[in-house]
Computed example of a mutant assay.
Amino acid sequence: MSTATHADLMSTLREAAQAALAVLPLSAPGTISTVLAVAQAPDLGDEGIAVSANFAGAANGRVTVVVGEETLNTLLMSPEGALDPVDALRPALETVVHALGQCTLEAGVEGDPAQALSQIADGAVAVIDAGGETLALIGLTLTAQPDTTPAPMPSFAPAGTPAPAGPRRTMDLLRDVQMDVTVELGRTSMTVQDLLALTPGSVVELDRAAGSPADVLVNGQLIARGEVVVVDEDYAIRITEIVTPEAGA
């Protein structure tokens, strides 16, 4: 893979992984800290797990999601019972592949993280961190030219034939998974000297005007904006805008 092509892959993966954060059931809110070559990927240890799947269509290749021990435990201790990592991580795989265009994603395969990453050795990896700790990796590689073979004509069953029972919808498995929701009024940057000078009564100015909507984040991903209200003496937020991936922050 040429340097230019690899740079394009890393840029594409960063955008796709950012979108996948909203459906990735992590043990804590995470952010994309960096995108790098697979050989430079941090080691999540022997207790993590990887789920990989090939895809074909507008692009051909393989996508892999690796989660660490804490996130794996979150899936195994779901209120709905232990979740199959293949099913629980498939929405993240689908989100990454969707960023490449019209592609068909094959069934996911569970495996050892190191072995799974070795199968995308010429690809790129997005590193998801929280508080300096690596929570997950999302790997992507393109292995062939786009598939231009015409799709076969669909076959139709005779009228009255009952439809075969399909697999349980993947998102249904995730409905009871706990995710952290954060409401952010604003941000600012301060030097260490300014931080040490803070005392009770100090005023810290934020980068947002009074009356501006607050951001609603799920696992660090912006999903909505709203206004702060009071309900039964508790703070709450009234949603005024849903933020789509296309709209951005």
Results as ranks from 00 to 15, higher is better:
V204K: 04
L36C: 15
G186K: 03
V229R: 04
T161Y: 07
T143A: 08
A124M: 11
A50C: 11
P152Y: 07
L135K: 06
V183P: 09
P79Q: 11
D147H: 13
A136W: 09
E241T: 15
D84G: 03
L93A: 05
A58H: 11
A4Y: 06
V125L: 02
L135A: 03
D234C: 07
L185P: 00
T240Q: 12
A7T: 13
P152A: 11
N73R: 15
I237E: 05
N60H: 01
T134M: 02
S212E: 15
M1N: 05
L222I: 07
L217I: 00
P158N: 07
L89S: 04
L196F: 04
E15I: 13
S33Q: 14
A210M: 07
A17S: 13
G166K: 01
V96H: 08
A82C: 02
Q193E: 15
A37P: 01
A20N: 03
L135Y: 07
D180M: 04
T134D: 01
L142Q: 02
S33K: 12
Q193P: 00
L83E: 03
C103H: 03
A144V: 01
A124Y: 06
T34D: 12
L26T: 01
V96S: 10
I49S: 05
G111P: 04
L137N: 06
E133S: 12
P85T: 07
P167A: 12
L93N: 08
L9V: 03
A58P: 05
V203G: 12
I120W: 08
T141G: 10
P164V: 05
V96Y: 06
G226N: 09
A92K: 07
V231I: 14
A209L: 14
V218N: 01
L140N: 04
A20H: 04
A99I: 08
A124G: 13
L26H: 01
I128L: 14
H6I: 11
I32N: 08
L24D: 01
T34P: 00
T5A: 12
Q102T: 15
Q221T: 15
D215Q: 12
V243N: 10
T148P: 03
V231C: 00
I239N: 01
T148W: 02
L93M: 08
A209D: 14
P162L: 06
A136S: 13
C103L: 06
D43Q: 11
